[in-house]
Every structure is written in C-alpha cells, then in structure tokens.
C-alpha cells in the first residue's frame, strides 16, 4: 500500500508537465546581461507586449556564438563586435544591430599596490600592473570581456600571456567566478560594469580605473539565420530584435538600475551595418 502510494507520487512528479509557454525563443547571451539582472527586468515587459517567452542561456560570448552556430539559439545577444560580424559574414546570422553599451572597469585592491587609482588611461594602468607584477586575474574563457581585456593588453604593449605563470592568472571562468577568485587573491581584474555593480562578494576590491574610451563595451544583437538552420524561430526572434531597438525596448534598457545607477545605455541606430 505504502509502496503503491509512493510509486504513484513518483510517477506524478515524473509526468508533471513543464509549465511552459507554447511560444518561446531561445537567446544565447552573455553572463553580464543575465547576472546583472537586466533580462529579469526587460523580458517580462517584452512578454507582456508580445506573449513570447524568452529563454536565456547565459554563457561567455565565444561559447554563446558557438551555440548559435550550431543552431541551438534563435537570437544572439553578445558583446564582441568583430566576432558578431564574423558570425554574420559566415552566414550564421541575418544582420548585426547595435543595442546598447556600457563599459568595462578595472577593478583592483583598495590598497592599490600598482599605484593606478583614479587613472583615466587604461593602457598606462595595465603597464604599471605588469611593471609591479601586481596580481591580475583574467577570465581566460574567450568571452567578450576576455577578448576586450586582451585588446587592452595589446594597447598597453604587454604580452600578458608570457607572465601567465606569475602575476597574470588565466582562470577560464565566467565573470562572477573570476570576481570571486580575484577577491580571494586580492588581484586586479577587468570586469563589465553591470556585473560588478550587481556583485556582492567584493571583499577588498574596488574600481581603480574607469572612463577611458577604450573601455567602451558595445552589445550587439543578431537573429540566427533560418537559411542555415530551418528550425530557427525567425519570426519571433525577429520580433524580439525589433522590440529591443524600438523606443519601448530602448527605454526598458535605460530604466534598469541598481542602487540608482544605470547599467546599460541604449544606443540602437535606425540603420546599422
């Protein structure tokens, strides 16, 4: 008797249907948009307007692009323009559009061992970190932030990879885990502002350098090409992309704030390459 009851209970749990909308699209995006809480803010607004549920798989930009290339997402929303343009050029995406931007910040110990606090020149700051061999934690995961960081090292004229057994640590992790590790090591780290703003385990870390134009972080959106993957939900995906660049969608992005601070700045153009 007990056994039968248990069996039925187990079967019920197993057979329970997923409470899911019939109409949904899958968006491959980056951890920064997810972890910062932006999607939690704008997606319900989109759904209320269109009835389309957006399921977000948050990965590093490199991984997200790979996912979309395999046809496992309907829309790509990431932040590394050259990669996005290549994605379109290779025929995986329909068209790339600017959506919004924020910026990267250089985080480091409040004690500021490299002496770079309040600097405006990111290249000079990185050069000082290298010169003083102050610890630096890199994403090392081929994400948008990681690729941006590598560009910054290049601008500083430093081969950071060569120091990867010493002060430069390549973690191969997402933004959050990298910040956790950096906090533990009291290391410098390049982060997008949104993830940092929403990050709670800061310990002895603070923003040391910000505001350099080279720290600009542009997000782009690309509908996955249905010509490449026939099952792609092109119409609903396009509806999401269209909404993001409408005044309504742009306003939704602009109104997302943490502690009064705006994290993403809409900058969609009517026409974009």
């Amino acid at each position: 008797m007990v056994r039968r009851t248990l069996l039925i209970a187990a079967l019920l749990i197993v057979a329970l249907p997923t409470a899911a909308a019939d109409r949904f699209i899958t968006v491959a995006s980056t951890t920064s948009t997810q972890d910062s809480g932006l999607f939690g803010h704008i997606l319900p607004l989109f759904r209320a307007k269109t009835g389309i549920e957006v399921r977000v798989v948050a990965l590093g930009t490199g991984q997200a692009i790979k996912l979309a290339e395999r046809g496992d997402a309907d829309v790509l929303l990431v932040h590394h323009k050259p990669s996005e343009e290549k994605f379109v050029a290779d025929g995986f995406g329909v068209k790339r559009l600017d959506v919004m931007y924020n910026d990267f910040v250089l985080i480091g110990p409040t004690a500021d061992p490299a002496g770079i606090k309040n600097g405006r020149d990111i290249a000079a700051a990185l050069a000082k970190i290298a010169a003083t061999k102050a610890p630096f934690a890199s994403r090392g995961d081929n994400s948008g932030t990681h690729l941006a960081e590598l560009d910054l090292w290049k601008a500083a004229g430093i081969d950071a990879k060569a120091a990867s057994t010493g002060w430069y640590r390549s973690l191969g992790s997402g933004m959050g885990p990298t910040l956790n590790t950096a906090a533990g090591m009291n290391a410098h780290v390049v982060s997008d502002r949104a993830t940092w703003a929403n990050f709670k385990n800061r310990q002895g870390l603070t923003i040391l350098v910000e505001g350099d134009t080279r720290l600009f972080n542009q997000y782009g959106v690309v509908p996955v090409n249905p010509a490449r993957h026939a099952h792609v939900k092109a119409r609903d995906g396009q509806a999401f992309v269209d909404w993001l660049i409408t005044p309504g969608g742009q306003a939704a992005i602009a109104t997302y704030k943490i502690g009064g601070e705006q994290l993403f700045f809409p900058n969609a153009k009517k026409e974009s390459s």
Binding site: T18, A19, A20, T26, T31, Q34, D35, F39, G40, R55, V56, V57, A58, G174, M175, G176, P177, L179, N180, A183, N198, F199, K200, N201, R202
Partner: peptide, 20 residues
C-alpha cells in the same frame, strides 16, 4: 540554467555564487 524553465537547485547555487 534558464530561469523558470531549466533552473534547478545546483545551477541556481552556481548562479548566485557567480553573482557573488
């Protein structure tokens, strides 16, 4: 780890950890 679709205890823990 899709919110409300495939988020389970362990992935939620991983997510909150990465948010610090």
């Amino acid at each position: 780890n899709i919110d409300q679709v495939t988020r389970v205890m362990t992935t939620a823990i991983a997510l909150e950890t990465s948010k610090g």
